[in-house]
């Protein structure tokens, strides 16, 4: 009885929330003020170093957001590998010797790598970019892992940590290097924006792929444990 009352109350509250929100959305749509932002963006696009406006916003106009976003991703990857503190990440249960999977893999892995490369390259002037490419790269890794290929590089050693942080570190380096060259922080020196953005995108692709893969591979859990505070030595 109590449970049904709770259900009913939650349902009513959520329905009320939805109606109020819908009213607010309709009102906002009706009362929208003209904004100069799209014109400003179009005017500045020429000096941003890329042709695709979304990539320009992500990696030039609002690149501080993107820098922090990669930081968030690194945190997730880091916590993932911190919880899987076994020395080897190889889980024998996941090794399969399925010949069909193996045959598929021989076709799919090169194709997917090619697709990742294309997405990375496409980001300059059409939908695509580092995150999409990194996601495909990680998916390739997942496929390889499911097919039982040995993947020594996702062992939680210094190499993995270097891989996790590489894209973030290069991005940060470029951010500060711009200031050393006399620009504002996170700005690219004139004429170099295109090249620097491409460099950032390439290392970000590698790092994003690695983080997502590490999160997938970090599944086996360790049996070591941390004593609670006050639980004695």
């Amino acid at each position: 009885m109590r449970r049904r009352l709770l259900l009913f109350l939650t349902l009513a509250a959520c329905a009320g929330f939805t109606v109020a929100l819908a009213a607010a959305v309709l009102h906002a749509a009706g009362a929208a003020l003209p904004s100069a932002l799209p014109e400003q963006l179009a005017a500045s696009l020429g000096s941003s170093g890329v042709e695709h406006p979304v990539t320009a916003v992500l990696l030039n106009f609002r690149n501080y957001d993107t820098l922090l976003e990669i930081g968030v991703l690194v945190i997730a990857g880091m916590v993932g590998i911190s919880l899987a503190s076994t020395s080897s990440l190889e889980d024998p249960a996941l090794r399969s010797s399925d010949s069909l999977l193996y045959a598929l893999q021989r076709w799919f892995v090169p194709l997917m790598l090619l697709l990742a490369l294309y997405l990375l390259w496409a980001g300059a002037d059409r939908p695509g970019g580092a995150f999409q490419a990194g996601a495909v790269l990680a998916a390739t890794g997942v496929l390889m892992r499911l097919g039982g290929l040995p993947m020594e590089f996702v062992r939680p050693g210094v190499l993995l940590r270097l891989g996790l942080v590489l894209g973030f570190a290069v991005f940060l380096l470029v951010a500060v290097a711009g200031a050393l060259a006399g620009e504002a922080f996170l700005a690219y020196p004139p004429g170099m924006a295109g090249g620097l953005i491409l460099t950032i995108e390439i290392v970000l692709t590698l790092s994003i792929g690695m983080i997502l893969l590490a999160l997938f591979v970090a599944a086996p859990v360790s049996d070591e444990h941390e004593p609670e505070e006050g639980a004695g030595p």
Binding site: P34, S35, L37, P38, L41, P53, V54, A56, V57, L58, R62, D65, T66, E69, I70, V72, L73, I75, A76, G77, V79, G80, L83, A84, F131, L212, L215, A218
Partner: peptide, 27 residues
């Protein structure tokens, strides 16, 4: 105002953040 790249970029950022949070939660 028609196709607007700014919210599209914001949403891309938001998606990455949501993926990071989801992955962390799953772990």
């Amino acid at each position: 105002n028609g196709p607007d790249p700014v919210p599209q970029a914001l949403v891309l950022t938001g998606i990455v953040v949501a993926i990071a949070a989801t992955a962390l939660a799953v772990v």
